[in-house]
Design a protein around this nucleic acid. Structure first.
Lengths: 332, 332
DNA sequence: TTGTACGCGTTATCAC
DNA sequence: GTGATAACGCGTACAA
């Protein structure tokens, strides 16, 4: 790998002049400039970024942490983040945490080490005290995630109202035995808390009591959905509707219902979350809650770039809440 | 940001000793070691990676370039790549080229700049002469891609035989008016060349002539599939089967067929490519060609790490061909 | 076992 | 306009 000294030697000018050519300074003798450029081309010289960084130069790379990239919600989110970044001259690199706190820290260390200049987190696995430490190394924006106290900008949709409206829709359709499925736990903490509350409120308003045996926790995948349907199918007292909190779980439920001959929505209404492409593929087509993925992504990238470039007019702890939309199809 | 000298000052030992502690050398006075560690913790010291790199230390970050992360084939591929990397102590960062040659080069520059230590390309947009230049900055492995001359290791499935078998399956089912759909062009160059040849051979063997008006090129998405179905539907002389080369295009075709009332497979048989989860969601379920995604990912990561760590026993230009599998469901 | 001194490749600050 | 030279933070011969 040729370095600046090689260029110096071959072009006969000083190191400073070469550096000036590299960073195209104005006042420089045209002949020397050309000679230097010629030499650089000939030997295939590129400035060593490590050395540049050592001198304190900033980069333009944004890292995005996603739990699992195979989840279409996140891949579409990343798509929109990347798009806005590109428009503003930033590169986006994606990192999958696999819902593993260690991997998440590993990636945050890239921020500490200036390998990336800012981080968008679309999920977090560590407690916030751990993550907060990284704030001094660069901006962090939280995307579509719950946070007890907003230390950083947050872009999200109103999960509480979204699940409330979803369950309310079921109630309005006449269903009263409404099961509930979540990726998290059914308690007052954690990132799924708001959705839980929405479910509770909608039921309370309709004077319906929660049936604990119709609560399914930690379900994420299509496969999980299949199993959920089997559990329901084997119940003495079956629910007549289910709010899944995930299009993928809903897909598993619908596919398996077809297999065992359970009619949807006559015997079981199903509502998903996200409005992924698969929602339209299912038979019957899936009623679901659409999140404004591209707006979320755009906002998040916009925020982090502004912070990076010092255009921040907003306060530190602003929360940006974006609207969702209930998309009614055939499964409810 | 504290540096090594701060640690030196506060701990009272020499810089070398601190450095030895950092890189945990064996022979060091326990008391000093502990004192140094204590100081490092107190001031929150982290080695500056740029400085380390400047000294020639290697990193452990692998970059993966994908055309579009929202394509499930690639997100699952990335998943398996990441998994193997993690097992071997490497971090994986993902980059989306958006099928844009400029973005691809932007990312390859991260290799040049030692921001990543190796690159797995799951697609390439630039001509190979451009990419070849980056080989001197670190190893590159090509994954699931065609290449005129193998300058780098390639992990792929036999696309020619895969499409040949797929089309042959249609022939064996009695279909003779077989349309063909591809993401590329229908000619002898480019990455889809092998699949084209497989289609041609299967037809030739059955003494069927290619009908040019049943050839669809540059189709990728569900939406493309919908449009293809409309074209077919409006034809005087309709094909009775279609090889799509993509589960997503196939999904569009099937969904739209349902809408216009065209029966599948009675009036049109459909075969996809990849065996994505959606293949089982469709109604009827999709016959498709399954690629061994996790094996491809594992192999690619394995190859690049071996190269990075100098364990290469293989020759430079080895091509690893993995087996595919025809999954027959209800759409053919 | 520990410390000194130098070099990695670049840019900023001077002085000319 | 141009060229020395001193940092940037770290690792490592080499010496002790």
């Amino acid at each position: 790998m040729p370095n600046i000294n090689d260029v110096v030697r071959l072009s006969g000018v000083s190191k400073s002049t070469v550096s000036r050519v590299i960073n195209n300074y104005p006042h420089i003798a045209p002949e020397k400039r050309e000679r230097v450029i010629k030499v650089m081309k000939e030997i295939g010289y590129t400035p060593n970024v490590s050395a540049q960084k050592l001198r304190g130069l900033a980069g333009k790379i944004i890292g995005v942490i996603v739990p699992r990239i195979v989840n279409p919600f996140f891949s579409y989110l990343v798509e929109s983040i990347e798009k806005e970044g590109y428009r503003r001259g930033y590169q986006t690199v994606i990192f999958q945490s696999n819902e593993d706190s260690k991997r998440e820290v590993d990636f945050l260390n890239l921020l500490k080490r200036k390998q990336v200049d800012g981080v968008i987190m679309t999920a977090y696995e560590n407690d916030w005290d751990t993550i907060k430490k990284y704030l001094k190394f660069g901006p962090i924006v939280l995307c579509n995630e719950y946070l007890p106290e907003p230390f950083v900008p947050i872009v999200k949709v109103d999960q509480f109202t979204a699940s409330y409206e979803g369950v309310k829709h079921l109630v309005q359709q006449g269903y009263r035995k409404i099961a509930y499925c979540t990726g998290g736990l059914f308690n007052d903490s954690g990132k799924y808390k708001d959705r839980n509350h929405g479910y509770e409120k909608a039921l309370a308003e309709a004077d319906i009591e929660i049936n604990p045996s119709w609560l399914f926790i930690k379900r994420h995948t299509i496969e999980d959905g299949r199993k959920v349907l089997h559990q329901i199918y084997n119940m003495q007292d079956r629910p007549d509707a289910i709010f899944t909190g995930s299009d993928e779980v809903a897909a598993g439920i619908i596919m398996e219902a077809r297999k065992v001959g359970l009619r949807i929505p006559e015997e079981l209404a199903v509502i998903g979350f996200d409005d992924q492409p698969l929602a339209e593929m299912l038979m019957p087509e899936l009623t679901t809650i659409k999140q404004p993925v591209s707006d979320i992504g755009y906002q998040a990238m916009d925020l982090i770039i502004n912070r990076l470039e010092g255009n921040e007019v907003e306060v530190e702890d602003k929360i940006y809440t974006l609207p969702f939309k209930l998309v009614i199809r055939k499964s409810t």
